[in-house]
Nucleic acid binder design. Structure first.
Lengths: 135, 135
DNA sequence: AAAATATATGCGCCTACGCGAATACGTCCC
DNA sequence: GGGACGTATTCGCGTAGGCGCATATATTTT
């Protein structure tokens, strides 16, 4: 009630989900923090496009960002509204059934488990859950 | 796989939910069949607007229609995809928390329980669940 | 058949938004 | 400070879609 965190905006929430690219981004985040450059690498598209979609998700309070040096990590945040929270959770698990989404994740895993990241994202920090795997 | 009922379209589904008017329509349907003229009456708007939004929901396979004489009843249909089904169900119950939606429903109940419908929709068939209440 | 009623659709206008290309911003390293 | 790198934003363009208004379609009634 501080004038900034108003009641959760349903329309904005659904509009944010109404785009395939954004759904792919959400699926890639899953329960991890993922760095922007990984999205660019895996979706094989240009960086501004990814950045704009992430901004949209941020505006809708669906994701949050954390800076680490020059890199920025994005993560899914639990919506304030418990109903939205449940829906988002269901959406995420729905995505897991989509073939393209599955391919996306496979590519993420493959890239992150490899001893060397692709040249385009050499020094980038891996998603948190991959830190343990590769010394 | 008959070329007509393809796999459920996620994007279309969410785009269909990304409009307040359509959410209000969905909430009014709830578990009932509701005639178009009731939507017009309750949302206090023009008829073409309602009709176009209903058409959108129909395209997205979220609602179905049934003709009864000159009237057409709309109802929510269970999406083919079980995940979509669950999400839609959660969305509906989310709507119940919204003040405007609550007012909409109150107006529906009030109108339907009255002995006489408003002049603008005199002979219209009431939603199914109100048939028992009024002789 | 003609009128009345309920619903659907076409049209023109305007905004939202997705896109690629260019550019701005922020951080690190020399 | 200057360059390199990762990310965000701006711009111009094209399409989707929301709206009010007019009109078409379908059904019932007379």
């Amino acid at each position: 009630m501080n004038g900034k965190s108003k009641t959760f905006d349903m329309e904005l929430f659904f509009r944010a989900l109404a785009d395939r690219t954004r759904l792919r981004l959400l699926h890639l985040m899953g329960s991890d923090e993922v760095c922007v450059c990984f999205f660019v690498e895996i979706l094989k598209t240009n960086q501004p496009k990814i950045s704009r979609h992430l901004a949209y998700l941020r505006r809708a309070d669906i994701v949050g960002a954390r800076r680490e040096g020059q890199w920025i990590h994005y993560r899914i945040v639990e919506p304030a509204d418990p109903d939205a929270q449940r829906i988002l959770k269901d959406v995420i698990s729905w995505l897991a059934n989509d073939p393209e989404m599955q391919r996306d994740r496979q590519r993420l895993v493959k890239i992150c488990c490899a001893p060397q990241l692709p040249v385009s994202i050499q020094g980038a920090p891996r998603p948190s859950s991959f830190n343990a795997h590769v010394n």
